[in-house]
């Protein structure tokens, strides 16, 4: 049972990881404290839900649509609002994005009401059984997609021209601007990318969890926990952080009881903030 719990934890953790990865770009790299991250995950869930119910589109196919729509939404939000205050204090980042989150939540409630919506997939409650260990198929697909997204993201940030520009801005935006990088456009792109990944996370969550307007609230804090745990500015760190939180949550649920998974997550978070503020794989923070 211990091994099974670990496996369940890793499968759940992959979902957490992809929730965290989007924020890793926005907060970890671009230093935009986005308190609306969870709400963008919620938007991704509604996009997927709508495409499924209206067009019968398989949720794993609509991940692409989620990515594109959330990318555009993210860039628009950046250009219209965040851009104006991006050089101001963290406090203003937090308040502004909290306001954006409130707008998104309630817009969703105006359109979809507060009903908890789910999609019924034939495979979301079936397991592969390998050597006595059960692996849920919906989770497994999500795990694979999350890994692919993580790899693509890593490649994009490390190997492409835009990725290098993003990293340059995160280290020193004045110097980056001097060396000919278009700071505003690149930051907007990076923000859009982070939100797009949040949208994909929403898509992957829908087959296993209902969506309602307030579902995003819990994901914002969770995403920050994962980014801080993994280490600022490290996409790989967020992946590891997500997996770790997933395993901790499952072990706590199994050995102590369901409600302890939240208790332990928050305690681990506070301990990391206090004793290892640079996270597991991050650069140390000044």
């Amino acid at each position: 049972m211990f091994l099974q719990t670990i496996i369940n934890g890793l499968l759940l953790g992959a979902l957490y990881a992809i929730v965290g990865m989007g924020l890793s770009i926005v907060f970890g790299t671009m230093r935009i404290v986005n308190f609306a991250h969870g709400q963008f995950v919620m938007v991704g869930m509604y996009i997927t839900y709508t495409l499924f119910t209206v067009f019968g589109l398989d949720p794993y196919v609509s991940a692409i649509a989620s990515f594109i729509l959330c990318f555009l939404l993210g860039m628009a939000v950046y250009r219209l609002a965040i851009h104006r205050i991006v050089r101001q204090s963290d406090m203003n980042h937090i308040l502004l994005t909290a306001g954006v989150g409130l707008m998104l939540t309630n817009l969703a409630q105006m359109v979809y009401n507060t009903n908890q919506l789910t999609i019924n997939l034939s495979y979301s409650h079936h397991d592969l059984v390998i050597g006595g260990l059960r692996i849920n198929i919906a989770y497994l697909i999500s795990f694979v997609i999350a890994s692919v997204v993580a790899a693509l993201l890593f490649w994009f940030i490390m190997k492409t021209e835009t990725g290098r520009a993003i990293r340059a801005i995160s280290q020193n935006d004045a110097a980056a601007a001097l060396s000919g990088i278009h700071v505003t456009r690149t930051t907007m792109l990076a923000f859009g990318l982070g939100i797009a990944v949040a949208g994909v996370a929403g898509t992957l969550l829908l087959p296993i969890h209902y969506v309602d307007p307030s579902v995003g609230d819990a994901f914002s804090l969770l995403a920050f926990i994962i980014v801080v745990l993994g280490g600022m500015g490290s996409i790989l760190g967020s992946a590891v952080g997500g997996l770790l939180i997933g395993v901790i949550a499952q072990l706590a649920s199994y050995y102590l009881g369901q409600s302890y998974s939240d208790v332990l997550t928050y305690i681990v978070f506070l301990l990391v903030l206090l004793f290892k503020p640079s996270g597991l794989l991050g650069r140390s923070r000044v």
């Binding site: 104006r84 205050i85 502004l96 707008m103 309630n106 409630q109 105006m110 359109v111 307007p213």
Partner: peptide, 21 residues
């Protein structure tokens, strides 16, 4: 409006955004 209370909170969010900006 669908849900008037949600609309009120939507305005609330918008107000916060505008005040911060």
């Amino acid at each position: 409006l669908g849900d008037p209370n949600a609309f009120a909170f939507f305005l609330y969010g918008l107000l916060i955004v505008l005040v911060v900006m």
